[in-house]
Simulated assay, not measured.
Amino acid sequence: MNSYAVFLRGINVAGINIKMADLREALKALPFSAVTTLLASGNVVLASELPAAAVKSEFESCLRDAFGFDAWVVVLTAARVAELVEACPYPADDAATHSYVTLSSDAAALAELYDAGAALDGVELTRLGAEAVAWLAPAGGTLDSPFSKLSAKARYKASTTTRNLRTLVKVRDAAARLA
């Protein structure tokens, strides 16, 4: 049995609302067990015999069928989430900045995003792997930060999602309990 973290993009923002209890109920019909939702921003940990690509496909189909939501998710093993948290060079808690990790299901799209972000003035980025980029934003100015605006472009919608590092720590800890 594999432990996974599933990160949904774009729920409970911009008028797309899915209650976590409803999501858990919809997922019961799938070959997943120990499904746990975390926070209301689309973070799920679960166990499955399926490989990650099949978890992604099943999960996205479920969201479309159950909620009419054109959904995209990033699926990572619990072990990989733990590695990314440990690899992030930025602090989880800091009064002046917030640490974020942009996750992607498409290595080429993330590479493009990273290269474009690295070319911006005043942006601090660290590539954590083929599926993740860590970055800093000023406290209170995340949505106005240059990298946040760049990553919000439509071209990245189907393959990326961003979480603050504190959220990834919570997901890591919940996923570790499944193992």
Score class of each variant (00 low, 15 high):
R127P: 10
D22H: 11
A130R: 04
L110D: 01
A158W: 02
L39F: 09
G68F: 01
L50Q: 13
C88K: 02
A152C: 09
F59D: 02
A130D: 02
M1H: 09
A130L: 02
V45N: 05
S41A: 12
F59G: 02
S61W: 08
A47K: 03
K56L: 14
P138V: 02
A132C: 07
R177H: 06
A174N: 08
T97M: 13
A108M: 05
A137V: 04
A78G: 12
L30N: 10
A95R: 09
W135P: 00
F32Q: 04
A118E: 15
L120C: 13
S159Q: 11
E124Q: 15
H98Q: 15
A54N: 13
V81R: 07
S148L: 12
S159H: 12
T142Q: 01
A21G: 10
C62S: 03
N17G: 12
L110I: 05
R80C: 06
V45L: 00
A152N: 10
A175T: 09
K28L: 10
T167E: 14
P51M: 15
L125V: 01
H98W: 10
D115H: 10
F59H: 00
T37W: 06
V85K: 07
A179H: 14
L39C: 07
Y114W: 12
F147M: 10
D144N: 15
A174T: 11
A21T: 14
L113V: 00
V74L: 00
V13Y: 07
S61C: 11
A132S: 08
A71E: 02
E58Q: 08
V123Y: 06
E131S: 09
K149H: 14
A66E: 06
A137F: 04
A21M: 09
A47T: 02
F59Q: 00
N17D: 13
V6I: 03
T36Q: 14
A158S: 10
I16R: 11
A5P: 11
D144Y: 13
T36A: 15
A176L: 03
L39H: 08
A176I: 04
L46W: 00
G117E: 03
S104F: 08
V133G: 11
L76V: 12
D70G: 03
V81C: 08
G10P: 13
T161P: 02
T167P: 13
V133L: 13
T162V: 15
E131P: 01
A174G: 08
G42I: 05
Y156K: 04
A175Y: 08
E60C: 01
N2Y: 01
D121N: 12
T36K: 07
P138L: 11
L150H: 00
R127T: 06
L103P: 12
K28P: 01
D173C: 05
A54G: 11
T102D: 06
L23P: 09
M20Q: 06
E124R: 15
T161L: 03
A21R: 11
L143Q: 11
K153W: 03
S104Y: 07
E58F: 06
E86Y: 07
A154C: 05
I16Q: 09
L38W: 13
